[in-house]
Amino acid sequence: MSMLKSKHLLNIEDLSNDEIYAVLENAKTFKEINDRPIKKLPTLRGRTIVNLFLEPSTRTRGSFELAQKRLSADSLNFSASASATTKGESLIDTAQTFDAMKVDMVIVRHKYAGTPYVLTQHMDAHIVNGGDGINEHPTQTLLDLFTIQERLGRIEGLTVGIVGDIVHSRVAGSLAPALKRLGARVVFVAPPAYQPVVPEELGAEVAYDFDAVLPELDVVCLLRIQGERAEGLSVPTIREYASLYGLNKHRADTLMKKDAIILHPGPMNRGVEISSDVITDPRAYILDQVNAGVATRMAIMYMMLGGEAGE
């Protein structure tokens, strides 16, 4: 039996608050294992997991793959360049093909929203959303929450600023509603073109003045600018964007709380949303997030597959 109510993790709303905390708790154990010289557990031995990455990804795919190996699952990487989808096969045919191969779980990353749901309609396997278009990225949220909880000891009552291209960010799409229902205050800090259409739908407040809101923030989560047409249409220039919304040393030193933390889901554009000397600021926990990613993904896969038939 899966330890979670929902068979799939398509959106962060598939996990209740209690389940989120349970994932974080389990992840703590896995994180300790990741610090041992021998990092392998037999937990998912005999289970088959497909990493269906229809859009290029290095960190998420690597993180999932490592998590699977450490749990002794058999995993298969199916990436866009090697996939049949580039030869014109439809997503549904790809799904049915893997379904016929009897896999237990599929981690899916695609540039289109709703892809994970489509897979659930054509496969028996558990589906985990590894990022769908600009919609959601729930496992990123789990690792972000883990890092916040680990560093600040709580989530409830914190003020979290998400700064950057929010409307094009699947990270914000999952993180903001999760933070909100766990009792945090969420502020979207961005120029109008980067704000979502209805920020309240994600549980967030809107701010345009980073300097004004920065002193209130316990967590500063920076997002990169997406899209090729950013410069000249969404914002005048990257230079002007960086001057208003980039976290540089001066801002961090003068306006940020001493005990606040800096997060970034990566990949980073150094000198744009974050300057190089902020990456090395002791308050930045960007690599801790990467580290937590493996542990939280081990936890979620374990909880979805761990106790199922065959145990």
């Binding site: 929203a113 709703g114 259409v197 739908e201």
Partner: peptide, 13 residues
């Protein structure tokens, strides 16, 4: 539509 549904579905409106 560029309204609540664009944010809810995570697609461009």
């Amino acid at each position: 539509h560029e309204g609540i549904i664009a944010t809810r579905l995570g697609v461009a409106g």
